[in-house]
Design a protein around this nucleic acid. Structure first.
Lengths: 411, 411
DNA sequence: TTGAAAGCGCTAACAG
DNA sequence: CTGTTAGCGCTTTCAA
């Protein structure tokens, strides 16, 4: 029988370029060449190489190839979560687009923790990825430094699910506070304002925003801030409530109770993330009350007293609520149906995310449709472009407020 | 100014072990050692190394490390889809468990295509992963060969979301038909049978199974086959229908119509996958009719004529339907509510997957709760065990038929 | 059209 | 406790 040809420190039984070369009666460089530039190899040789390739079941070792060439095709992506349909679809968009371009996706989840983000980032950067995709614009100082140096070393860094106005970014850059990475997403402040505007337009003056309660989800908080700011500047009353943890549908059901009970039931701080503007702390507890803003009501409908009962706090009862996501909103809507609370008559309900079932409910839930999948596709495209030397364009992606029965205008 | 220290073919600006060593006044092996076995380095030296590490912002190059040591910590996973909550949660389970163990997750989606699976597998194997996770037990011949040789080379291969009885597997092995990989999941045939049994127990004799219409999702078809087999052997009538493509909620709504119209409306072949048992083709179109099986009704309730009208085909109208997933079932349930069709009075509805909203509907949807997240965790644990030399245990994971109002027994 | 030599950044083995 | 040497499997020169 053939003696085991096991050399010192030789890999784990997988055949190498040299094995193929031996079988084909050439040197390894010829096989390597055949694999990358078949045109440069004589047809006669090619035939033998092809046969040897099949015979040995050769699978190229990418670490070796990458080490030698310095060219990576791995893209590292960091998402808060893979199970949430929001990020799952983004992952799918990334995966589809990257696969089509021959890249591979190394993925990690952070559970919304900046600490875990930094840790994972450190691990992923060790693969010298062709590009890095992170979620959001806020990172730990360490992560920020890692990203900056990666970017400097030529690895494009892309921030998804967030977007700042160019002017904002220029200001920050001037202040030297951070490195400008490519952003692909949308402004959560803007969405929050649009959500408020939508409810104002429907004639509501007593609004509430229900936050998800995930402390580190600063984007949800920003929507809440935008919502409250717009409402106040229109002279409306706003409460910000925080949903309890646990099943979000049940949390939504519970929130319906609190909303009906009146604004004074609102609770919970605003969970400003670590990057919140200094000096903007308003203390814990409910932030509510009429705004000191300028406008009194922008689009037509003048303020009008609510026909509903006064809430517990002595202030008027909330007549319209916006939620951090469709799960919460749906829970509230289902609970309202069970209790025969008129939607939108007694309370208008507005979600965020526009999940597939939202339009199926009765009444159908108004929501904000998000470019979930497209964010992944656009991020992949931007990073592919960056690799080709094209400076990747910032992209504010389109979202859309989808008005359905749950926020139909009051008559 | 300092001369650019750019050496020939030197990497891309990132600092290497040698840079750190120089800064610390030692050789690279000492730094390497410090990183892996700090105890072996003198404290004095360690101090200088630590400083140099920080100063240079060193990030270890994993390809080089892996190439030199032959030890990989990458796990490659192939899933049909990342956006579907079923696989998204599995991905999360994998990610969480793997991250905790210091492994990294290289992920790819196949869109249920065996061809894409093989292609992706080939690409991922190039990273010499520590283990490979694939979905299901059916693969293209090429993929099968790749997996077998990977397994032989010492890379554990784990098949998730499916499970066969040890006896079945032994038979297959004896027939030499395939390599035995570790399976972590459950038997879809068994689930299908349980779904039928549940409806039979509730007194139904005219059943239907609604398939998802994804041709390559053989697991859904197997559930359908198990469902039909159990129903027939109990002497009940069964139709197998196939949902149209597009939004699954809307498809479910449409299917309600067809179910109410009677069994003759059923259509679509059974989409047996490429691995279906030879000789089992029953031709296209609806497979229906009373079974030639043995039992007449197992658990109590004797066959009882339906009180509802006769269907179009002259046979009795369907009184209970099981669906390939909760999306379809929910669509049907919502449509029934809209049309004031009594659920479960006129038609009992049973889903699969037990998604979060299913229990929120009215009536609440009966469904099969799946170990979505746990499959990921168990797969990760099995592969971790395999790496430690423990032969990974096959695991049939628990599912549970959750009976709710939508299939409450007829009175 | 093919090959030889050198090196990517790191680690295993063996000295010292 | 630290260093030297060789080599992981591949690709990049450069030469024939």
């Amino acid at each position: 029988m053939p003696a085991p040809t096991r050399q010192l420190r030789r890999g784990h039984g997988r055949s190498t370029l040299r094995d193929v070369a031996e079988a084909a009666g050439v040197t390894s460089i010829t096989v390597s060449r055949f694999l990358r530039e078949p045109a440069l190899v004589a047809e006669e040789t090619a035939v033998r190489v092809r046969a040897a390739l099949v015979q040995t079941g050769y699978v190229p070792n990418k670490q070796a190839g990458l080490l030698a060439s310095g060219v990576s095709n791995i893209v590292a992506a960091l998402l808060p979560n893979l199970a949430n349909s929001i990020f799952a679809e983004t992952a799918q968009g990334l995966s589809d687009t990257l696969q089509a371009a021959g890249h591979e996706l190394l993925i990690a989840s952070t559970g919304y923790s900046l600490e875990r983000e930094e840790e994972q980032l450190r691990a992923l950067l060790g693969w010298h990825p062709a590009a890095v995709v992170v979620t959001g614009r806020r990172h730990s100082p360490g992560a920020q430094a890692l990203l900056a140096s990666a970017q400097q070393a030529g690895t494009p860094v892309i921030e998804i699910w967030d977007w700042q106005l160019p002017s904002e970014r220029a200001a920050q850059r001037a202040a030297g506070s951070r490195n400008p990475f490519t952003q692909i997403g949308f402004s959560h402040d803007e969405v929050g304002r649009a959500m408020a505007q939508h409810l104002l337009d429907a004639g509501h003056r007593h609004l509430a925003y229900v936050d998800s309660g995930i402390a580190e989800d600063y984007r949800a908080h920003e929507r809440g801030l935008g919502f409250a700011a717009r409402a106040r500047s229109a002279g409306a009353e706003v409460s910000v409530l925080v949903a309890p943890p646990g099943d979000p549908f049940n949390a939504g059901r519970e929130m319906l109770q609190r909303l009906l009970a009146g604004p004074a039931q609102g609770s919970g701080g605003e969970h400003d993330g670590p990057g919140a503007r200094a000096g903007s702390r308003r203390g814990r507890g409910e932030s509510s009350g009429s705004g000191t803003g300028t406008g009194t009501g922008s689009q037509g409908s003048a303020p009008r007293p609510s026909r509903t009962a006064k809430g517990a706090g002595g202030r008027s009862a909330v007549t319209a609520a916006a939620f951090a996501n469709d799960h919460l909103a749906s829970g509230a809507l289902l609970e309202a149906a069970r209790q025969r609370v008129a939607i939108p008559g007694r309370l208008a309900l507005l979600g965020f995310g526009d999940f597939a079932w939202s339009r199926q409910l009765d009444p159908a839930l108004s929501s904000v449709a998000l470019p979930r999948y497209d964010i992944g596709v656009a991020a992949a495209q931007a990073l592919l472009a960056a690799r080709r030397g094209t400076p990747p364009a910032e992209r504010a992606l389109q979202w859309q407020l989808v008005a359905r029965a749950s926020t139909a205008a009051r008559r």
